[in-house]
């Protein structure tokens, strides 16, 4: 269908660039907004603008934030001698929800991926190493994903951090709850066996 109306066509095109939204859904969203009150459209537009204007990266941990340093880095109650290293900002909320971690974070914004040409220079690795220089940090928890890229990243960071004498730990890799031993892959099962604990 040809959309002859310019503003509508522009909005449909913008929507269809969003992940998971095809041309059909883009059209539906645009027509929906067309029939909503003006304030609703304004609120949406304002929220999108605020996202780009007010949100930046924390200069310490590189998490996304609307103030610098971010609330976690500013929090005096937290244990600043422990840094948990994650790939993405979206990895922090699930760790926070566990309520078991009181240290601070460092966001790499990706993982090493040799075949895609993503090396440590493309990530926030240098910022991490500089946080470890003054000796105030005693433990680095590597919480990169348990897949090839995450594992490569963790092994690389380990190599860089080891000479600094900081304790390095890695999240345990075990069987997910509800998993079936029979179908567990070798890597997971082997790791679960190695990391077994008193019961």
């Amino acid at each position: 269908m040809m959309i002859s109306c310019q503003p509508l066509a522009r909005l449909i095109e913008a929507f269809s660039k969003l992940p998971g939204i095809g041309p059909k859904s883009a059209q539906r969203l645009a027509y929906y907004l067309l029939h909503r009150p003006g304030e609703e459209a304004e609120a949406l537009a304002e929220a999108i603008l605020a996202l780009k204007e007010k949100i930046g990266l924390c200069s310490i941990c590189f998490n996304i934030t609307d103030c610098d340093p971010c609330p976690i880095c500013q929090d005096k109650e937290r244990d600043h001698s422990k840094i948990c290293v994650v790939e993405r900002p979206s990895d922090i909320p699930p760790l926070e929800r566990t309520g078991k971690y009181k240290g601070v974070y460092h966001v790499l914004h990706g993982a090493v991926s040799p075949a895609q040409g993503i090396g440590p220079e493309e990530l926030k690795t240098r910022g991490l190493l500089s946080r470890l220089q003054d000796g105030s940090v005693t433990e680095v928890i590597l919480a990169t994903n348990p897949n090839l890229e995450g594992e490569t990243t963790a092994m690389y960071l380990r190599r860089m951090i080891l000479p600094l004498g900081v304790r390095i730990t890695r999240l345990a890799r075990g069987l997910p709850f509800g998993a079936d031993l029979e179908y567990a892959d070798d890597a997971t099962l082997g790791q679960a066996l190695e990391d077994r604990r008193e019961f």
């Binding site: 040799p114 075949a115 090839l148 594992e151 490569t152 092994m155 690389y156 190599r159 892959d185 070798d186 890597a187 082997g190």
Partner: peptide
């Protein structure tokens, strides 16, 4: 075979990724 000896070593894993590329 999950080539676990390879995956637990930074250099070995990187060599493996090179072959795949």
């Amino acid at each position: 075979d999950g080539f676990l000896a390879l995956k637990s070593d930074l250099w070995g894993m990187s060599c493996g990724l090179y072959l795949l590329e």
